Amino acid sequence: MKTKLFLIIPLIASLAACSGSGDSISSSGSSTGTVSVLITDNLTLAYSEVWVNVQAITAIDANGQAVDLYRNTTGQTHNLSQLVNIGALIDAQTIATGTYTTFDILMDNQIQLVDPAGVTTSATFDQTGNPGFTLSVTGQLVVDANQVSSLLLDFDLQQFTYDVATNTVTPVVIQQDPTTLNQTIATVNGQVQAVNSPTQFVVTPATGGANITVDLHATATVTDTATATVAADTTPLAIGMQVTVAGTYDATNLSITASAVGIVTGASITINSEVEGIVTAFD
């Protein structure tokens, strides 16, 4: 039986985190660095919701060597319209050092558009009938030894075009500077690796990505979905537990300031996360 865990992530200014690059991390190898993969979007008034499912992101260097930054057959579903000036963490992976210049994004070949009147259009990215659609993005990501860096991919909704005749959407994605983000959010499904204190634990993402340190915000809740009990600290947590963590992400320190933690025992987790908050300014 699958258990659905719905986490609403409030946009709290005190939880804001910026994604940086070039900061030192501890690593057992001298030829790898850790990359946080983030997505965002540009503002459009044409649609109130734009839903896509991201299944893989691959980085390719000038020699054609490819490395997965994220890959999951289920994928992650995001409402791009809620990510204006906000980054959403896709994954954090430790990869070989080098300069990567092409980023292939594999998405489900379905996109859902909701206009301001609430009318929903289900379209595809092409007419091939294939279940997946791959978009290549040109850019540059330098991964240095024992350093953290961030790759920010901007789904530029202002440049998306919809063809009524073919019911297809032509997407535009560009690489952006992660330091321009107001905030980075994360919803991570994984396993508790360590419990360090009443307010901190370490989670290993189910994607196999780099370990992430989780610090509980002062208002955070830790909910056991099996018993519906709620705690304000890490007391219910134990090594090996499956959890879903929601909060703001700090790419420099590979950490999440959690607003909510859900414990799921003996079941798989389906994550459907949305952002709620008030936009105070557009840059």
Rank of each mutant, 00 (worst) to 15 (best):
V119H: 04
T121S: 07
T121F: 05
T121L: 11
T121Y: 10
T121I: 01
S122P: 05
S122A: 02
S122E: 02
S122G: 04
A123V: 04
T124A: 03
T124I: 12
F125A: 10
F125S: 01
F125L: 09
D126S: 09
Q127L: 14
Q127F: 12
Q127C: 04
Q127W: 09
Q127T: 14
T128S: 14
T128N: 08
T128K: 07
G129N: 12
G129M: 14
G129L: 10
G129I: 13
N130T: 08
N130S: 14
G132P: 00
G132D: 13
G132N: 06
G132L: 12
F133N: 04
F133G: 02
F133H: 02
F133E: 01
T134E: 13
T134V: 09
T134Q: 07
T134P: 00
L135S: 13
S136E: 05
S136W: 08
V137R: 02
V137H: 03
G139E: 07
G139F: 04
G139W: 02
G139T: 02
G139P: 00
G139S: 10
Q140T: 11
Q140I: 10
Q140P: 01
Q140L: 13
L141I: 06
L141H: 05
L141N: 01
V143Q: 03
V143P: 01
D144H: 04
D144E: 08
D144W: 03
N146H: 11
Q147G: 06
Q147M: 10
Q147S: 09
Q147H: 07
V148G: 04
V148C: 08
S149W: 02
S149K: 00
S149C: 12
S150I: 00
L151Q: 03
L151Y: 01
L151M: 13
L151G: 00
L152V: 07
L153G: 06
D154M: 12
D154C: 10
D154F: 10
D154Y: 09
D154I: 09
F155K: 01
F155T: 12
F155P: 01
F155V: 11
L157R: 11
L157V: 13
Q158D: 14
Q158K: 13
Q158R: 14
F160N: 15
T161I: 14
T161V: 15
T161W: 10
T161C: 13
T161Q: 15
T161M: 15
Y162G: 13
Y162S: 09
Y162P: 00
Y162W: 15
